[in-house]
Amino acid sequence: MIRRAWLPIALLAVWEIGARLGWINSTLLPPPSQIATALVDWARDGALVLDALASVGRVVAGFALAAILGISVGALVALLPVVRRNVVPVIELLRPIPPIAWIPMAILWFGIGTTSAVFIVCVGGFFPIVTATMHGIAHVRRETIQTARSLGAGQWLTVTHVVLPAALPDILSGVRTGLGSAWMSLIAAELVASQSGLGYRIQLSRLFLRSDSVVAGMLVIGLLGVAMSLGLRALERRLTIWNGATLGADAVLGGRPVEQPQAGR
């Protein structure tokens, strides 16, 4: 354990010692011990849990909305040429607008608070999901769909049991990207358009020049992001257990042998 983590431990030690010896201005960059103290204080009065719950609640609500909208719109676009012709230009136009650029309009429409934050989260999560769904469905092999039709499946059965499951790995990787984007958008929204949550907390700490609390807040944001991403990854594994090829990336990173599907996909 210590052997693998020596680099971060050494950096933390240098950082701590540097701050104590006065090489580092601890207002600009508080030492780890001070950050830890701020974190403990924050946790002790219960505010940490409340802030985290506020943020996670918003991200869950906004992200669920984004997933439902993104997958349905993406599927309709990919399956119906009429929808594709009319909707794709709109999506392409809106996609490059960063979610935080929607904040002023969100405040105008929904005021400062949870609704605005949920809206921003939804915008942040929607685009990666809709794009991945469109591409995932468009790349389902022609022969797979033809086989289903030739086995007597109607449109509905073909879409629900063949097209969507075949596109699921792509859709889920879009969902994972979307979650990252949604979480980042949420924190940005909370910085300016909220009275609670982790983003609001670090903004407040900045006003009091409590840089230790700011960094503690950033730390919690990072850890929660990792936790959600891991949770989603686990769900993804479960849902696409049939996709032997998903072991590929892990194998490259972890040095395990690559398992290939037998033929085709």
């Binding site: 033809q146 499951p165 049939w242």
Partner: peptide, 18 residues
Amino acid sequence: PGRDRVVVFQTLALFEWM
């Protein structure tokens, strides 16, 4: 397309998720 003339492709096009 219909069930009276089912096709098998070279890629087999198995439903990998089933």
